[in-house]
Design a binder for these strands. Structure first.
Length: 476
RNA sequence: GCUCCCAUCGUCUAGUGGCCAAGGAUGCCGCCCUCUCACGGCGGAGACACGGGUUCGACUCCCGUUGGGAGUACCA
């Protein structure tokens, strides 16, 4: 039997990190077992759901490389895959529940419900519905009413969780949950059961926060006479302070990480490793993760989001990437930064590849190659320290020496510069830094020779001479 | 309050009763490389929450305590 897994986001916001990780683990398991990964849009909250959010979620999933076999845009014969388009299907299940006596109509008012809840809480008991209408046998003519599940009153329900192990719930703790609202629409816990069944989902993998819903859903499966899927609950991702991950801890949306210049490979790598381990594997591709993945390696405890490690991984991915590919993929980031690139791009990127933790940093580090001379960002400290009165003549002469360098290769430039230093009895540092500041406006940057080559002779000579002009023209 | 889950370096984790005077990664510190910054190399500090059991032997098993998290809706 093929394993069928699903990710069921609500289009009430962007795809956040936690959701992406849930999707990822489902995807990994599906790919690992040659199963099916499907996407279901839970858009029944009409007040908060928006088509734009759905589009964004789909885009971010695709960006991460989490492709789905069934769902919006992919087809599949278990559709439709949007809950709003499935509304008609739930009525028959509700009717079945009513007929078999597994559900009943309830006309209790909200006021009464609140009073019951408060009374229970005051006495230290679990706040739950008291079953007031359970034995009344109310018919469809009872006026405004909800439909409640007549849950088992005694015994216990054991959830055989693939991550947590057996989790036992006392049925007395669970109450008669509402499965259909007074406006006729079914509620979440009922709908997931029906949808997961109709979509033939075999494994439900979701966040920890759903563990408490699971016994209710399991009882619903049983009441409906449906096979119960396997469950696995993943620990949730926490913020740096151990609390729920929120804006206070930085970005929470996948889109924000893309915009900040994180590579999908790195984000996926980090997300996989967060809460899952396979020995000492740290830096791995999606394919490698698929090959090694298993629910057995999933941690039970929540994990804190660590930007430092994500950044490190991103840098590892940037460094490991073929320079030509990296150059192509950096294009949108140059564009976003308003930096126009040219044919030197690949060479340029090569010089900053090991100096950027993100694509945005890469663009920042490379911008000086492309910006107009007068638009260079000057670091005052660097100028003061390295462009002094005495440096002016050095840079001017160096400009002439370099102009005479026909080959303009790293090797020949190194020979030229070193010969110049020896002739002047100057340490390399006394020459290299002024050149760097002239070229970049900054005191840090790529290696001297690779930078000169990547910049091109024309720009290099021009900036070195401009650097000379920038030096004080008289001793102060 | 009640129910459920969880607990190894700051962080992510390895560890499934002896191989652990607890390993890796990140971050931090130092040294090296060096024209700067990175990269890279080497080294260092840094953890089994606590208390009881079980056992010849517990990081590993059981119980409790403490701490953290989740749920407790006519939201999903």
């Amino acid at each position: 039997m093929t394993m069928r897994l699903r990710f069921a986001p609500s289009p009430t916001g962007y795809l956040h990190i936690g959701g992406a990780r849930t999707a990822l683990f489902n995807w990994l398991l599906a790919r690992k077992n040659k199963g099916v990964f499907l996407l279901r849009i839970e858009d029944t909250d009409t007040k908060r759901s928006k088509p734009e959010f759905e589009a964004q979620i789909l885009r971010d999933m695709a960006w991460l490389g989490l492709d789905w076999d069934e769902g919006p845009g992919a087809g599949g014969d278990h559709g439709p895959y949007r809950q709003t388009e499935r509304q008609g299907r739930y009525a028959v299940y509700i009717a079945q529940m009513l007929e078999s006596g597994k559900a009943y109509r309830c006309t209790c008012t909200k006021e009464r419900l609140t009073a019951v809840r408060e009374a229970a809480q005051a006495s230290g008991a679990k706040p739950k519905y008291d079953g007031h209408c359970r034995g009344l046998g109310l018919g469809s003519d009872c006026g405004e009413h909800v439909i409640r599940f007549a849950a088992p009153l005694s015994g216990e329900t054991v959830v055989a969780d693939l991550v947590k192990g057996d989790v036992t719930f006392n049925n007395e703790e669970l109450d008669d949950l509402i499965i259909q609202r007074s406006n006729g629409t079914p509620t979440y816990n009922f709908v997931v059961v029906v949808d997961d069944h109709e979509m033939a989902v075999t494994h439900v993998i979701r966040g920890d926060d759903h563990l408490n819903n699971t016994p209710k859903q399991q009882m619903l499966y049983e009441a409906l006479g449906l096979p119960v899927p396997k469950f696995a609950h993943l620990p949730i991702i926490l913020g740096k302070d151990g609390g729920k991950m929120s804006k206070r801890h930085g970005d929470t949306s996948v889109g924000a990480y893309r915009e900040k210049g994180f590579l999908p490979e790195a984000l996926l790598n980090y997300l996989t490793r967060l809460g899952w381990a396979c020995g000492d594997m740290e830096h791995f591709s999606a394919d490698e993760a698929v090959a090694a993945f298993g629910l057995g390696g999933v941690a039970k405890a929540g994990a804190k989001w660590d930007m430092d490690k994500l950044s490190w991984l991103n840098q590892q991915w940037i460094m490991a990437m073929d320079t030509k590919v990296l150059a192509e993929r950096s294009l949108p980031y140059f564009e976003a930064a308003g930096v126009a690139t040219d044919a030197r791009l690949e060479a340029v990127v090569g010089t900053v590849q090991a100096r950027a933790k993100t694509m945005v940093e890469l663009v920042e580090a490379a911008a000086f190659y492309f910006t107009a001379d007068e638009a260079l960002a000057w670091d005052d400290k660097a100028t003061k320290k390295f462009l002094k009165y005495s440096t002016g003549a050095v840079l001017r002469d160096l400009g002439d020496v370099l102009e005479a360098n026909e080959a303009w290769t790293e090797e020949s430039l190194e020979l030229s510069v070193k010969a110049f230093c020896e002739a002047r009895e100057l340490g390399l540092g006394k020459v290299a830094q002024p050149i760097r500041v002239s070229m970049t406006g900054q005191k840090k940057g790529p290696g001297l020779y690779e930078m000169l080559v990547a910049a091109g002779k024309t720009l290099a000579i021009r900036r070195i001479r401009a650097g000379a002009d920038r030096c004080p023209q008289s001793p102060s």
